[in-house]
Design a binder for these strands. Structure first.
Length: 193
DNA sequence: GACCAGATTGTCT
DNA sequence: GACAATCTGGTCA
């Protein structure tokens, strides 16, 4: 299957466009334990200091530093005392915009995902932001890693034009009505219909 | 199937 | 000291 890594240029576009463009692409991790790949079926945009729901709203801090870094890098953060979430930094350096990957359809390395998650059901493996990081073995060590050449990469495998549904974001208390969540219509692997 | 509580810790006020 | 871009497992129907 033809396969190419998304270029840095892809991430430098408008954050909403990148969020939509990431649907149907493949998120892959290359770790000592093995390779895992999942098709991206759900994303959310987080804008910079103009978005009250974004970690970057109040400006740069130690925690969100990589969100203000170079586009095409990973922003991995820890929350609720036990969960990691994965974002791709977008836009331009310093604006603090990123796309949260909310759900994947497992494609390769499913056995390894099942082992990491401790369950068999492939639908439950990656249908949530903290689930997919666990399934792919993403943790804080991978914060700030380069998505075009590091242990995490996002790949394009074929031209796909998925039908995209726009909806309000999930799990936040600020600006929750903004339509910045995107998912592929009809996928069984999204976190919420 | 829907709703609710508990887990657990880094980070900011 | 409060809270968080969540998940899981329980109860009740």
């Amino acid at each position: 299957m033809q396969e190419k890594v998304l270029s840095k240029k892809f991430y430098e576009g408008d954050t909403v466009e990148v969020a939509r463009g990431l649907l149907g692409k493949y998120l892959a991790t290359f770790l000592p334990e093995g390779v895992t790949v999942g098709k991206i079926v759900e994303t959310e945009s987080y804008l910079g200091t103009a978005d009250p729901a974004s970690h970057s709203f109040k400006g740069p801090t130690k925690r969100n530093a990589s969100m203000f870094g170079l586009p095409g890098h990973a922003y991995v953060y820890f929350t609720y005392g036990m969960h990691y979430c994965f974002n791709a930094v977008t836009g331009r350096e310093g604006v603090g915009e990123a796309v949260l990957i909310r759900a994947l359809e497992p494609v390769e390395g499913i056995k390894l995902m099942q082992k990491r998650r401790g369950m068999k059901d492939t639908v439950q493996l990656c249908n949530g932001p903290a689930k997919l990081t666990q399934a792919l073995g993403i943790d804080r060590q991978l914060n700030g890693c380069n998505l075009t050449q590091g242990s995490i990469r996002i790949l394009q495998r074929q031209e796909e034009k998925p039908e995209i549904v726009t909806a309000p974001r999930i799990g936040i208390s600020q600006a929750k009505d903004l339509p910045l969540r995107f998912y592929i219509r009809g996928s069984r692997y999204i976190s919420k219909p």
